[in-house]
Amino acid sequence: MTTDVLIDEAAEQAAFDAIIEADSRIEPRDWMPEAYRKTLIRQISQHAHSEIIGMQPEGNWITRAPSLKRKAILMAKVQDEAGHGLYLYSAAQTLGITRDEMTDQLIAGRARYSSIFNYPTPTWADMGAIGWLVDGAAICNQVPLCRASYGPYGRAMVRICKEESFHQRQGFEILLTLMQGTPAQQRMAQDAVDRWYWPSLMMFGPPDDESPNSAQSMAWKIKRFSNDDLRQRFIGMLVPQAEVLGVTLPDPELRWDDDAQRWHTSEIDWTEFHEVLSGRGPMNVERIRHRRTAHEDGAWVREAAAEYARKQAGIRSLSDERRGGTRTAAGTEAAS
């Protein structure tokens, strides 16, 4: 008789619920409802994929950055994004899915990533707009996640948020420099803001009554604030920043509604959102193609490293046998 039969599922569920209720953390080997595990795998891996795909629109400008300082900053930002993807894949792995599986899902088109990255970056000002608007929106989403109920996810988010603080600033400063520059630079900046503003508002997702997963995620404390709530906070942050920049947010109806105590905006065109989500945005196909190509082109390299490691392990165990010893637990230390 296995221990599985002896597990009292009701008791496990009660313990799980109590942890959630107490705002404490679920850790990797804790019992959790299968739906919670699946939702987390989906959410964390999507987040990881977004970071990795997000490297592409910005990576597009590394070789053409118009000053060496901007080049360095942009390279560091994109490098951070790779790192963030790694932290998140690492958190997802604790739930029983492997990196290879997640990569395969992404490449096969079976996994989602933030649809904001399905837009092209035709100008340098897009680097500013992405940093200011897209990273700004991401930060709004991410800071609450630092208190997500799943321990590894929350901890990854704390690390990410610390690092991401410069991403929004560098985007803002790119735009500020442009707006204080030549007429052509000012036009470039305003044009980029015009193109990225509405998509960045859509990053928070549809109104919650149309968002099927919201309620359950909120109950599990994976999601801490509603979509509309976050969108409102984001707009509230942007308005004074736009004033400093001297850019116009492309919404003629945008104003503070004192009676309703919220920002009044034009209607968001959710059809565009759904089109892009369904694969019919400008860059959907290309983002996956690019990732797939890098992965396929790199296969022989990964294989070579794995094969070398196998050979070395074989050599080591052979020499251990000859010496009559056994292999010790493989840990390696480096200290400075």
């Binding site: 990576g59 060496l68 560091a76 490098q79 790694l86 790199g298 390299v301």
Partner: peptide, 24 residues
């Protein structure tokens, strides 16, 4: 810099970017 987002593995994207940044 041209290898970023094209490296054989994500860890290598980070490593090559690190080298590129040092050289820059």
């Amino acid at each position: 810099g041209a290898w970023i987002a094209r490296a054989p593995e994500l860890e290598e994207d980070v490593a090559l970017a690190n080298i590129a940044l040092d050289l820059l």
